[in-house]
Design a protein around this nucleic acid. Structure first.
Lengths: 154, 154
DNA sequence: ACCATCAATGCAATCGAGTTGCATCTTTTA
DNA sequence: TAAAAGATGCAACTCGATTGCATTGATGGT
């Protein structure tokens, strides 16, 4: 998608995950470290939400070595600055994706019951109306569709 | 929430739950044990989904002593037999309620962001249509509304 | 370009939810 | 009422995640 402008006045065409990650990091008023760069790049590159282990593996594959704890802290830091998005799945494992995939505000997730993959979906076409009992004040809805992903369904 | 007091310091609601629990258990082709009775009664009595710890506390309050592991196994057993319903919350702690509160099939949950309580809601009035990408095969939707419960909102 | 500062990292220890193996005890049924 | 199937308690363990603390390294000021 050449020429389309993205967040900081740079076009997608000239911004691969690497430079984009660096850019996002320096814009976030934090230090640009190898661990943060690697993690953010990996998240930007992935179409699916990644678990801690999956990110760890991806880091290793890049020949880097980042401590388990550092990874937790990097992810925490990215989430705090809205550069990443954290999803709680039923297996009680956090999963993360780059914030740009987590379409701002309301959006749903798809969870493949076979391979376990989780992807962000565009928001619901229309807000479903829920029968909220008297006095309950809704703030946000969290929606997960469980089913089979294209690869597992095929 | 405590009801009108009955014979031996037990409230009407509790007495109800007691006989109901015993009934459900014997109908479920399993042994009727003190632990199972207590847990099912507690779930039947509660308007909100209870965590393992909350159930443990409730058991203690009844003067019973049930092992941590036994409680896990009782809950697992109840869920297998559809006598209880298990909910995964964002704090990565399972919560349980009696199955009769978990209206069969599709239904949503309300999570109070202040006190942490989780309650079952009636299902969405109509299935919202989601923009599922090509090839994704939905099976069931899981919906949680986050907000404030009547007590915390007031 | 250098250096001092303070945030970021690595390491070890710890937490907490949940699970497993096994010996013992209890409900059931015959 | 006794045997058998099943439930329980205990101890040890798994695993994701967190904390404390000493060390390292990115960055802004000179």
């Amino acid at each position: 998608m050449p020429g389309i402008e993205c967040c900081n006045g740079v076009t997608m065409a000239e911004a691969d995950a690497q430079s984009r990650a660096r850019q996002l990091l320096s814009a976030a008023a934090g230090r640009v470290t190898p661990a943060r760069l690697a993690v953010l790049e990996i998240l930007l590159d992935s179409a699916t939400a990644l678990s801690h282990h999956e990110i760890e593996d991806a880091i290793e594959r890049r020949g880097l070595d980042v401590d388990r704890v550092t990874l937790y802290r990097v992810l925490e830091w990215l989430v705090e600055r809205d550069l990443a998005h954290r999803i709680a799945a039923e297996d009680r494992v956090w999963r993360f994706n780059a914030a740009d995939r987590a379409h701002a505000g309301e959006h749903a997730h798809f969870h493949c019951t076979q391979c376990g993959q989780i992807v962000c979906l565009d928001g619901p076409d229309s807000a479903a109306t829920f029968a909220l009992p008297e006095g309950y004040q809704p703030e946000r809805a969290e929606i997960t569709i469980h089913g089979r992903c294209p690869r597992c369904a095929g």
